[in-house]
Amino acid sequence: MKTAPLTLYGYWRSSAAYRLRIALNLKGLDYEQVAVNLKAGEQTTEAWLAQQPQGLVPVLKHGSQALVQSPAIVEWIEETWPEPALLPSAPADRAIVRGWAAVIGCDIHPLQNLRVLKAAAALDGQGMDSMKAWAQRWMVPGLRALNDMVRTAKRPGDFLWGEHPGLAEVYLVPQLYNARRWGVDVEEFPTLLAADIAARALPAFIDAAPENQPDAEAG
């Protein structure tokens, strides 16, 4: 049976869209990309709000079905194409890995989303300096705690949970990309950094990297 086409609407530097590119690549799935230029404000247009009323990316279209919110979409991808698995087989182990992903997806990333950073900058009028300070304020303790969690429960292997990248790296690699962008010293998180380096050497992650996207800006 022919599979309905996949179309990913996103932005090259959106970490939520970055997650989906990684997940799709790890599954070996073909997909088309359509850029929504957040810098130019395309997410606020009437046409985009008709698709995503929050004015956010990404959206993944599967045929005529449009899916929103990257955590739900990643879980849908995992359920629809279960091999290669992004999660461990045991329920307790899956809960641990989902918990690590949630540290990023629920606690760290929402506080350094573009619209939140812009709001933080507007509060004191310091612009980019305020955005950087705000991003670091929430990323550093969150990543420090996650590094401790992983170090305590880590399985042998190059990745956060063993020998193969999975859901944890789907969230980790985009978050460390953002951390570097905002001047966070990622050397402080050696367990996370080791998995990030191992993952970014793989084709699925190289192809998903922001700088390798069709809409990437130079510099």
Results as ranks from 00 to 15, higher is better:
166 G>C: 05
155 R>N: 10
163 E>K: 09
152 T>E: 15
129 D>Y: 00
165 P>K: 06
178 N>W: 07
92 A>F: 00
170 V>N: 06
91 P>I: 07
85 A>V: 10
142 G>M: 01
176 L>K: 01
149 M>A: 11
112 Q>Y: 11
146 L>N: 05
103 V>F: 10
121 A>I: 09
141 P>G: 09
160 L>K: 10
126 Q>T: 10
115 R>D: 13
98 R>G: 09
156 P>T: 05
120 A>Q: 15
159 F>G: 04
116 V>F: 05
88 P>Y: 12
147 N>K: 06
101 A>D: 03
161 W>F: 13
165 P>I: 06
136 Q>R: 15
118 K>E: 13
137 R>D: 07
94 R>E: 05
99 G>S: 13
104 I>M: 05
103 V>K: 04
151 R>W: 01
149 M>D: 10
153 A>N: 14
169 E>L: 05
172 L>V: 02
101 A>G: 10
177 Y>T: 13
109 H>L: 08
87 L>C: 07
154 K>M: 12
111 L>C: 02
164 H>A: 15
102 A>N: 11
104 I>T: 05
172 L>A: 01
135 A>M: 09
142 G>N: 02
152 T>G: 01
153 A>Q: 15
168 A>S: 08
177 Y>I: 11
170 V>L: 10
145 A>L: 15
173 V>S: 01
131 M>A: 14
157 G>Y: 05
108 I>P: 00
85 A>Q: 13
106 C>G: 09
164 H>M: 13
164 H>F: 11
154 K>F: 07
150 V>R: 02
86 L>R: 11
86 L>Q: 10
86 L>M: 14
124 D>I: 08
170 V>P: 08
111 L>H: 04
87 L>P: 01
110 P>W: 05
123 L>N: 10
177 Y>N: 14
150 V>E: 01
108 I>T: 05
162 G>S: 07
173 V>F: 00
161 W>Y: 15
123 L>W: 04
154 K>E: 10
152 T>K: 14
142 G>D: 02
141 P>R: 04
161 W>V: 08
111 L>N: 00
138 W>F: 14
135 A>E: 07
164 H>E: 14
167 L>W: 12
124 D>F: 12
117 L>N: 02
144 R>Q: 10
128 M>K: 12
136 Q>T: 06
145 A>H: 14
148 D>S: 13
159 F>R: 05
124 D>E: 15
146 L>T: 04
97 V>Q: 08
102 A>K: 12
169 E>K: 05
137 R>M: 12
168 A>T: 05
87 L>I: 10
144 R>A: 13
105 G>S: 15
114 L>V: 04
169 E>N: 06
139 M>R: 03
88 P>H: 11
110 P>L: 01
131 M>I: 13
91 P>F: 05
169 E>H: 07
115 R>L: 12
93 D>A: 14
88 P>E: 12
129 D>A: 15
92 A>T: 00
178 N>C: 09
167 L>I: 07
143 L>K: 01
156 P>Y: 04
140 V>A: 08
162 G>P: 01
157 G>T: 06
169 E>A: 03
170 V>K: 03
111 L>M: 13
158 D>C: 02
115 R>W: 12
142 G>Q: 02
91 P>Y: 06
142 G>I: 03
129 D>V: 11
169 E>G: 02
161 W>S: 06
137 R>G: 06
173 V>Y: 00
148 D>E: 15
109 H>N: 09
97 V>P: 07
132 K>N: 11
165 P>Q: 05
97 V>A: 08
